[in-house]
Computed example of a mutant assay.
Amino acid sequence: MTRDGAGSGAFAEAEAAVRSATFRSDLSVRDIPAPQGLAPFSLALAADIRPDDHGDSPYGTGRLVLLHDPEGQDSWGGPWRIVSFAQAPLESEIGTDPLLADVTWSWLVDALQSRGAPYHSPSGSATKILSKGFGSLADEGDGAQIELRASWSPIGSFRAHVEAWAELVCMLAGLPPGSEDIAVFGARRFRD
């Protein structure tokens, strides 16, 4: 996090709101270094679904960066911006669904709406990745992955925006709201 000059009071309040967010028990959220040079003030979080002892998750992961520029930026339409990333493995059949990208974006919109987190100036992309192993990786079989990179300018509660992002990360991994403590038998990657 960068802390210098005017605007630190507003950012300190936003940081406190972010840190007050609550997460489901099977989502591990931690601070990570924020990218430098994007804004005078920034805070970054990483989330992993049911990580193993080494911190890796076979189910899905996400990153969120809260940016603040007291002078505002034209492309943001104001002084605040959230930049997010979420990805999860999929079964190969799901990865070929032509509506997958649209559904993935709708999950972000739905999560923001369900948390009462209004926003403006959204942008993003959903990427479907299909893979097939060859040679020494042939045993891994076919696989698929979905990635959502999105940004928006938040209005209102920063806590609500962070909780909506966390909900999205879980939705991509196949864990809808209310599914805490339900057994997951393995990553949703299909193996031949």
Rank of each mutant, 00 (worst) to 15 (best):
P58H: 09
P58C: 09
P58K: 06
G60E: 08
T61I: 11
G62Y: 06
R63Y: 13
R63Q: 05
R63N: 11
L64T: 00
V65I: 13
V65H: 10
L66G: 03
L67P: 01
L67N: 07
H68I: 10
H68Y: 12
H68N: 06
H68C: 05
P70Q: 15
P70G: 13
E71P: 10
E71T: 15
E71Y: 10
G72V: 02
G72N: 13
Q73A: 13
Q73V: 14
Q73T: 12
Q73D: 12
D74C: 09
D74P: 06
W76N: 04
G77H: 05
G77A: 04
G78M: 11
P79M: 08
P79W: 05
R81P: 00
I82P: 00
V83E: 03
V83C: 07
V83D: 04
S84G: 11
F85M: 03
F85Y: 02
F85T: 01
F85R: 02
A86T: 01
A86C: 11
Q87H: 05
A88L: 13
A88D: 04
A88H: 08
P89C: 09
P89D: 04
L90Y: 00
L90E: 01
L90N: 00
L90W: 00
E91W: 06
E91S: 06
E91V: 10
E93Y: 07
I94A: 08
I94W: 05
I94N: 02
G95H: 04
T96G: 15
D97M: 07
D97N: 12
D97T: 04
D97H: 10
L99G: 09
L100H: 05
L100P: 03
L100A: 08
L100T: 05
L100F: 04
A101G: 03
A101Q: 14
A101D: 09
A101F: 05
A101R: 11
D102H: 12
D102E: 14
V103R: 09
T104M: 15
T104E: 14
T104K: 14
W105R: 09
W105G: 04
S106H: 14
S106K: 11
S106I: 06
W107L: 08
W107D: 03
W107S: 05
